[in-house]
Design a protein around this nucleic acid. Sequence first.
DNA 1: CGATATTTTGAAATAATTCAAAGGCAGTGG
DNA 2: CCACTGCCTTTGAATTATTTCAAAATATCG
Lengths: 239, 239
Amino acid sequence: MSNNRGRISEMAVGIETAELNALFAEGRKHQFNAGEHLITEGEPCNFVFEILDGTVALARNGKDGRCQILSFIGPRQFLGFATTPNYPNLATALTPVTAICYPRSDLEKALLSSPKFSLEFQIALTRILESAHDHVYTIGQRSAIERVASFLLYLRANQANFSQDGAQKKGEHVVLPMTRLDIAHFLGLTIETISRVFSTLKQSGILSFNDSDSCEILNIQKIQSLGGCEDFTQHPGSA
Amino acid sequence: MSNNRGRISEMAVGIETAELNALFAEGRKHQFNAGEHLITEGEPCNFVFEILDGTVALARNGKDGRCQILSFIGPRQFLGFATTPNYPNLATALTPVTAICYPRSDLEKALLSSPKFSLEFQIALTRILESAHDHVYTIGQRSAIERVASFLLYLRANQANFSQDGAQKKGEHVVLPMTRLDIAHFLGLTIETISRVFSTLKQSGILSFNDSDSCEILNIQKIQSLGGCEDFTQHPGSA
DNA sequence: CGATATTTTGAAATAATTCAAAGGCAGTGG
DNA sequence: CCACTGCCTTTGAATTATTTCAAAATATCG
């Protein structure tokens, strides 16, 4: 079902236009080291990226040093959409990342060449929007422990749905490719609060850590009741 | 430049397809009273709405009574996009509302009939996403007084850009078509905090109220420095 | 004008932050 | 292999912003 050329190329399966062929001919695989920027904020962004492997953080940085991570972007997810000439966000590789870079102009031509492809793209964009709305709900309404629980469910859902081998099993093992500070910046909390919540969940026997980069959910019912099954889990997106 | 058939029809200016004609033939004007629901959460949503007049609140409601308003939708903005069969949000008219209702199936056919129209739509969706990202930053990073200041700038920008008569002047008079509770639900705060912040701004001579439904920004520089010029103001959207 | 809903103000409680220090882990060089 | 360095994480104590609970004031509507 899946191929090694990513989700965007899958969206065009069965569609044949010269512009789509040109798009996939122009799309180049790129490697990024952890810490490298795929997109720099305030500069024109002429590429749309699809992640094949690794995790990217998309962040909005305030002038006063504040930082809000808007989304974590993993395999089969996109980034680089913008309507303003200068992209307002910073995209940083959290791990070594493999991505396909599509020139924006080629993507636009390909979208114009096939309404069917264009509609697929629109559905993907709508999913990303729904994911952002989940994020707004979580940050606006939930307590610290609830936000962390939501976050674990969000990671778990994404890992299950988008793992490269196409496996769909939702394991209770959750990988955390980001630091505590990244989690804090995503959830609108401080690093200390994140750490305290993890400690509490450990002490309650709900969570256990092998190393600090991955954990085991021991009581999934409890995490679900804290995190709210209605949020995050159902529709994974990107941005 | 503008017509009385709304922004969606403007997006199709110069494009002629049978499906677009059918879409605009099927699009019906509807009136909603304040308090009426355009879309009910958890039910299939078979229409996309464009607001011609009035204001709509799009909200996500938790099972435990929590409520997060995702966006306030005014003239020339859309709502009703969803990838799930059941729409997870509740759209409520805050004022008497005039909207054009387009059957989703007709819109989809129209999008498939014209790549140019489809691309325009995609750009509009991307703007909505950027607006949601602004919202995430504001709720995740800013203090109560900063959130309120951001909110005033957001309303001011939308009123200037989207007023029905096409006037582009940014006045210092800001209309608040929503209650304090709505503002609280939008900003992830309580009604008491909103009220206290307004009182503080009044006492500082930054803001003045004629009635509780509209205010005058007396010190726009102060509001901008509190609200952060980088957020909200530049690109209005909907959802 | 009276009744109801909304908004404002006050005082106490609380969740999360801030500031500060200690603990753990990975990599480097002796 | 061990000690040292730097970075990230955890824990503690005090502070603070916001919430909660409660009551008063103001506006809205029949």
